[in-house]
C-alpha cells in the first residue's frame, strides 16, 4: 500500500538534496562548503524563520563584540585613562607593561587577572599585547591619549581591519613596534595608512591572507617606511609559478 508513496517520498528527498547542492559557488573557493552549511542555506531559502534566526545569531555575535569593545568611560572618570586602558586590555584577555617597569600584567586562559594593576595610577602604558583578542576599531578609543605606547602586538586579531590601521595615527609619534601578522581582514588599502606612523622601527606583516600581491606590497611598504624593518614571512614569492600561469 505505502510502497508507491515511499518511492515518491524518496524521489522528493533526492530532489531536495539536489536543491541543496545546486547553488553556484564562486570560483575562488576551491571546495564547496560543508554539508551543514548547505543544509542551512537550503532551509533559509525555504523558511523565513530560519533566516530570521540566523540573522539574530550574527546580530548577537556582533553585539557581544561591540560590548567587549565598549568605551570604559566610567572607569576612566574614576581611575583615569591609564587604568581604564589597562582594565580594558585585561578584560579582553590581553597583556600590557607599564612605562618604567619590567613585569607584565596578563590575564590567564580563563580571563582571570590580579587587581594589582590598580596600584599604578597615572603610569602610562609602554607595551601592549592584544594578540588573539577581539579588539576592534571602537575599542581603540580606550587607548586615546596614550602618548608613550611603544609596542603594540595585534597578532591574529579577527576584528582588526583597515579602518583600525587608519586609526593608529593616534600613536604616530610614539609607536615603534607593530605586529599585525595573521590578521585576516587587513588589505593593501589599510597598509597604506601606516605611513602616518613616523617612528615605526619594526613591523610584522606575515601571513596576511587579504593582500593580493604580497611581493609588490612589501617592496612598496619598504619604500614608504625607509627606517622600518619589515618582517614578512609566509608568502610564496615563487616567480616561476606565476610565469607558468601566464603561459
Amino acid at each position: 500500500m505505502s510502497a508507491p508513496l515511499m518511492s515518491l517520498h524518496r524521489c522528493f528527498q533526492r530532489s531536495a538534496f539536489c536543491l541543496v547542492g545546486r547553488r553556484m559557488w564562486s570560483s575562488s573557493s576551491v571546495s564547496p562548503p560543508p554539508l551543514h552549511t548547505r543544509m542551512l542555506l537550503f532551509l533559509t531559502q525555504r523558511f523565513y524563520d530560519i533566516e530570521m534566526l540566523l540573522r539574530w545569531r550574527s546580530h548577537m555575535k556582533r553585539r557581544s563584540i561591540q560590548k567587549k569593545n565598549a568605551y570604559y568611560g566610567y572607569t576612566k572618570s574614576f581611575y583615569g585613562p591609564d587604568i581604564a586602558a589597562a582594565y580594558y586590555i585585561l578584560s579582553l584577555k590581553g597583556g600590557f607593561r607599564y612605562t618604567g617597569q619590567s613585569d607584565w600584567f596578563r590575564a590567564d586562559q580563563r580571563g582571570k587577572f590580579s587587581w594589582d594593576f590598580l596600584n599604578h595610577k597615572d603610569t602610562s602604558l609602554e607595551e601592549v599585547d592584544m594578540s588573539y583578542t577581539v579588539i576592534n576599531y571602537t575599542g581603540l578609543e580606550n587607548f586615546y591619549g596614550q602618548q608613550s605606547l611603544k609596542t603594540l602586538l595585534l597578532r591574529g586579531c579577527p576584528e582588526v581591519d583597515d579602518w583600525f590601521l587608519a586609526r593608529l595615527h593616534m600613536f604616530q609619534d610614539s609607536l615603534e613596534e607593530l605586529d599585525i601578522s595573521h590578521c585576516p581582514r587587513i588589505t593593501t588599502g589599510g597598509l597604506a595608512a601606516l605611513r602616518n606612523l613616523k617612528g615605526l622601527q619594526r613591523l610584522d606583516i606575515s601571513y596576511l591572507p587579504g593582500i593580493s600581491s604580497p611581493g609588490l606590497v612589501i617592496i612598496l611598504l619598504e619604500e614608504m617606511l625607509p627606517h622600518c624593518q619589515i618582517t614578512a614571512s609566509g608568502y610564496d614569492h615563487n616567480l616561476r609559478q606565476q610565469g607558468e600561469e601566464e603561459k
Binding site: R62, G189, G190, A193
Partner: peptide, 24 residues
Amino acid sequence: MRNINEHLGVLNEDPVDLQFNHSG
C-alpha cells in the same frame, strides 16, 4: 562604510569589500 557589512551584508552572500584605500 566602516560598518558596511552590518548595514549591507546579505545573509549567505559574500561580504562587501569596498577596496577602501586609507590614503587621505
